[in-house]
Amino acid sequence: MIVWGMVLGGYPRSRLARYALRDAERGSIPYLELHKRIALASAEIIGAQKAAGLPVVVDGMVDWHDIFRPFIRSWRNVSVNGLLRYFDNNFFYRIPVFTGEPDIIEPVWPQRVREYSLLADPATLKVVLPGPLTLAKMSEHPGFRDEEIADLVANLLSREVSLVQEYGVYVQIDEPILSDRKATRDDATLAVDLASKILGPVSDRGIFAVYFDFPSKQVLEKLLEVKARYLMLDIEDSPARARENAVPLTGHVPVVGIVDGRRIHTDRLSDTTVSIVKALAEETDEVVVTTTTWMDLIPYRYALKKTSILGEIVRELASRVGGEVRTLWR
């Protein structure tokens, strides 16, 4: 079995990035200076992942205030309203408000991919997109049903993908709403259909991610239909639930959230975790280890440490399952 690792999503901001954004908000630095400083902060994050041997890296998305914001800012007929709690975190996102059918003013990812692919080389960059269902359910859209907004959003995200696919990037769709214990099979069906549409052209490098909790059996069953090679599940947030609901991810490579992205302790690979991984990976010869969630809600120093721990856990898991490590450097 081949075992390799990647970080799931965004990083916290280093002091450099925090101050750059603050200075830009105050109008005391021009846009180009902000851009330069954010690029420097991102380079450090990409470097940390490469140093940990991760073959697929994220740019850290440190300039994003939340997962929705860069897209909302780049779309017509959408604005942001007040703050709302983001799942069970002590973190608040700004509620997107759709006032009409959204359309792209300027795509979010192509420019980033051009810049950060060079920094990432020889690792491959990963593009992360908000899941249409999560965005629909966490936004206001008077006059539209959730399904309608989700469908419109999926069309825009498909265009993002079409603009970056020539770069050979990995593309991840985040649908954390499907970890909600009230998520239904219908929710999962819609999310899977839309993600399959978006990831269609890149399905061999497509990742479908569900985190903050382990999904219910009925949701997980539906997730197996997604047209994405990689299926990410958070198994550390609630190991008991993961153990109870885990099934072989037939037709997919499991991407297992093991390194806790929301807490700062030094992660260890437990026997329980190994047994859950084995259950999920029963019908595959490849496993990807990742963080349970984005790491943007822990201090920067710990996120760098966790990146390194991720590399160590990849090696340990490979040894525990009798597998072979795939790292950036060999």
């Binding site: 916290p12 901001r13 925090r18 954004l21 603050r22 908000e25 205030h65 939340d66 703050l83 002590n90 973190f91 608040f92 996102y93 700004r94 700062i264 943007d296 809600l297 822990i298 201090p299 920067y300 120093r301 710990y302």
Partner: peptide
């Protein structure tokens, strides 16, 4: 005392340990 953790936008609190 903790280090800076984001609450919203570019606003942080020192999440204690």
């Amino acid at each position: 005392p903790g280090e800076w953790v984001k609450i919203f936008d570019n606003v942080y609190f020192r999440k204690p340990i």
